[in-house]
Design a protein around this nucleic acid. Structure first.
Length: 759
DNA sequence: ATGCTGGTTGTTTTT
DNA sequence: CAACCAGCAT
């Protein structure tokens, strides 16, 4: 019989083996894309259990998504025999939720707390504005939520923040933050940040509890450490301080979540917190061809202040990277899907080995439409997520109330859904009463039912409220005797919900189908003790992400023959035989928001890097010269990131009708590139530049008639009668001159009428 | 109380 | 161009 250690180490490189065998003391594993990171992590866990005989329940593995957790666990199981339920593989949020479920009462969190998602949070923010009598129109809920999230990530509590307020804007933020938090408290609810924050406070303030967990988890292994935020770092540090067996894995070049307060220095400065750290770098890629790796390397070196790490591989050179220039979104979709069909039919690449990746979700649309028309099966990751559908959320809201009567967000969601004669005005009055009594909406309703409170309510409203209360009581009474699926059926029946959604002729059937799917996903909880099945089901629902449903999910229809449409962010950690990076345009990738801000621009470059390194054999970039964006059409330029890739690695292709003799020149000498090689020749031919002098009237294929108002050589601005001011590159603009500038007109004179659009 | 409509608004990425 | 909201008519 082969010995366990040999089995576990078989097929691993020296470096990988070194990482697997390093079990004692802090370990920092810098793992480039495709370097076998997941493999090493799985083997390392198996080694701990199988060779070092560490009981599985003494190990905690933390991953970024539930899917990664599942994968890690499965791979580990294939290597070594152990009781799999003992190995804790969780996301940070999932782990913290679990801890709070057990020991939350130390920090004032009841066992049956609710987890508020972004939707709930926004509603609470709105309510806070109303409570504080501040006009919400002056502020965006999103911005305030961001601020609150930042405060929580720096462990700043509402009262503390209130004391250091220094200007009016902060005062507003502070008042809303306090109010927001007290609504959450009254609702027995936490938001995503609270899961981490409260767990941190619990560990920090209650040594007994901390010791319980850090004694139990002798070994901790954390994935995607470059994307951990300050709270996650603090929790990790506390948990591992007693024994120091912490292994963190990550890649600073793939840090793409700084907007969520992730801090890559948690990884890069890891040694500062754990001086005895051993560092192992995995830089051999087993995934991508040489060409693809070269492209990735030559892109990422443009980020300054980066610790040098060049990926290398023994793989083939592979084919060149294609750069497709297209004329419009539809054009782009057509070109990309044409090639995908060719790969699929002529080269036998299965569709599930192909992905289209984009920067923003809105880009998926054109591809979806065309997939449907061509009959290509696809799965869209993200978009409107299953658990975010109206009807699903409604049913979940009823379940949440059963689980936690104080859950105001859930209660307010269904108080009049289906319609039961409780008007907005009535609801507003109930909310006011709740605030006045500093209690939950449900307890106000209960008081109204028992006649102790009436507020300013009219008799008819009181009658409706009483009926609603009775409805809820009826559900509560029977809830602990039913499995979730039966409970859902009971709720549907009592609320007459199905006939409510059937009234929608268009979407009624879909919605009913979604509810059936929800029931199916709750079915697997059947049999567990009815007391805890509801809260674990709801917890699971709150913490699943989009990628979790990708494959092998417990509750999702299998779809091995589907093309994948996915954002670059979500694609992290995945790999495909062929990857199409679409919309490689200035303003999209890099996103407009980041242009001009060096830090954000570097992150955009990393996002692009992540995309490139998902590809095993075939990589494509595509961009469109013209793109509709929030209802307006604008001219686009090829992304600087594509220009940072050496030309000998790429081949350029032009969509029908849009190729242009000057385009080759452009790809060579784009404005971005000029900074690097100052002796490249200007790219636009003289004639075409000259004829676009200021004041010239032109006709554009798409925008129609316009007048040139600015000429900066290669590009300039045109004001169009119907579309307003556009920035265009002369060489691409499908535009003809209809009337030359009149001579006597003064060039310096600014004749633009800003109202020309409305004329 | 409910449903419709017309005007306004905003748009990165998400555990 | 959507989605969303407020105010209006039913």
């Amino acid at each position: 019989m082969k010995n366990v250690s040999e089995t576990i180490l078989a097929g691993l490189s020296d470096r990988q083996q070194q990482a697997v065998k390093h079990t004692e003391g802090p370990l920092l594993l810098v793992a480039g894309p495709g370097s076998g990171k997941t493999r090493v992590m799985a083997h390392r866990l198996a080694y701990l259990v199988g060779v070092n005989n560490i009981p599985a329940d003494r190990i905690l593995a933390v991953t970024f998504t539930n899917k990664a957790a599942r994968e890690l666990k499965e791979r580990c199981e294939r290597l070594v025999d152990f009781q799999k339920e003992f190995l804790q593989v969780r996301t940070f949020h999932g782990f913290c939720a679990r801890v709070l479920r057990f020991d939350g009462d130390y920090v004032g969190i009841p066992r049956e707390f609710s987890i508020f998602d972004e939707d709930d949070q926004k509603k609470v923010i709105r309510r806070s504005f109303e409570d504080e009598n501040i006009d919400i129109k002056q502020h965006s809920p999103g911005t305030i939520l961001n601020t609150i999230s930042r405060l929580k990530n720096s462990t700043k509590m509402p009262d503390e923040f209130a004391r250091e307020v220094s200007d009016y804007g902060q005062e507003i933020a502070s008042r809303i933050y306090s109010r927001y938090q007290s609504i959450l408290d009254v609702s027995n609810a936490v938001d995503f940040d609270d899961l981490l924050l409260k767990a941190f406070i619990l560990f920090n303030d209650h040594k007994y509890v901390l010791d319980k967990y850090s004694d139990r988890f002798k070994y901790i292994q954390i994935d995607e450490f470059q994307d951990t935020n300050p709270l996650q770092f603090k929790v990790s540090k506390l948990l591992s301080n007693n024994n120091g067996n912490i292994c963190v894995v990550g890649d600073p070049d793939q840090s793409i979540y700084s907007w969520r307060y992730a801090d890559p220095s948690n990884l890069t400065d890891f040694k500062k917190s754990f001086p005895k750290t051993t560092v192992i770098t995995l830089d051999q890629s087993y995934r991508s061809t040489k060409n693809i790796l070269d492209a990735a390397n030559s892109l990422i070196v443009n980020n300054p202040d980066r610790t040098d790490k060049n990926l290398w591989t023994n793989n083939d050179i592979g084919s060149k990277i294609a750069v497709y220039q297209t004329g419009s979104e539809e054009d782009e979709a057509r070109v990309v899907l044409d090639e995908i069909q060719r790969l699929n039919q002529s080269e036998n690449t299965p569709l599930n080995e192909i992905a289209i990746m984009y920067r923003v979700n809105a880009q998926s649309r054109a591809f979806e439409v065309l997939c449907q028309r061509l009959g290509i099966r696809y799965r869209l990751i993200g978009g409107v997520k299953f658990y975010e559908r109206q009807e699903v959320k409604d049913v979940l809201a009823y379940l949440r109330i059963v689980n936690n009567k104080s859950d105001d967000a859930a209660l307010l969601r269904v108080i009049n859904t289906p319609r039961r004669g409780i008007s907005d005005k009535t609801v507003a009055e109930i909310i006011r009463m709740a605030r006045e009594n500093n209690t939950s909406v449900f307890s106000i309703i209960a008081e109204i039912y028992s006649g102790k409170l009436t507020g300013e309510l009219i008799p008819r409203a009181i009658k409706s409220i009483k009926a609603f209360f009775e409805l809820l009581e009826g559900i509560f009474d029977i809830s602990d005797q039913l499995d979730i699926t039966d409970l859902i059926n009971f709720i549907l029946e009592r609320t007459d919900y199905i006939s409510y959604i059937r009234r929608d002729e268009d979407k009624g059937l879909d919605r009913e189908e979604n509810i059936n799917e929800l029931k199916a996903s709750s079915d697997q909880y059947t049999g567990i003790d009815t007391g805890s099945q509801l809260s674990s089901f709801l917890e699971n629902v709150a913490l699943v992400s989009n990628v979790d449903n990708l494959e092998g999910g417990d509750d999702v229809r299998p779809s091995s023959e589907d093309l994948t449409l996915i954002t670059l962010h979500q694609a992290k950690g995945l790999e495909y035989d062929a990857v199409f990076l679409v919309g490689c345009e200035e303003g999209l990738l890099p996103h407009v928001m980041s242009i001009g801000e060096p830090d954000s621009l570097e992150e955009e470059r990393r996002i692009c890097y992540v995309g490139i390194t998902r590809a095993k054999n075939n990589l494509y970039f595509s961009y469109s010269l013209v793109r509709r964006f929030r209802g307006v059409t604008g001219g686009q330029m090829l992304s600087r990131f594509v220009n940072e890739i050496p030309e000998n690695l790429t081949t350029k292709k032009y969509a029908r009708g849009f190729s242009h003799p000057l385009i080759d020149g452009y790809l060579k000498n784009s404005p971005n590139r000029k900074f690097k090689s100052p002796n490249t020749r200007p790219l636009v031919d003289e004639k075409r530049t000259v004829q676009f002098s200021k004041g010239t009237k032109v006709k554009h294929d798409i925008f129609g008639d316009g007048i040139i108002i600015k000429n900066e050589g290669n590009e300039g601005e045109v004001v169009f009668l119907k579309h307003g001011v556009k920035r265009l590159m002369w060489q691409y603009a499908p535009m003809i001159v209809i009337e030359k500038k009149r001579r006597h007109e003064n060039d310096s004179h600014d004749f633009v009428d800003p109202e020309i659009d409305t004329a």
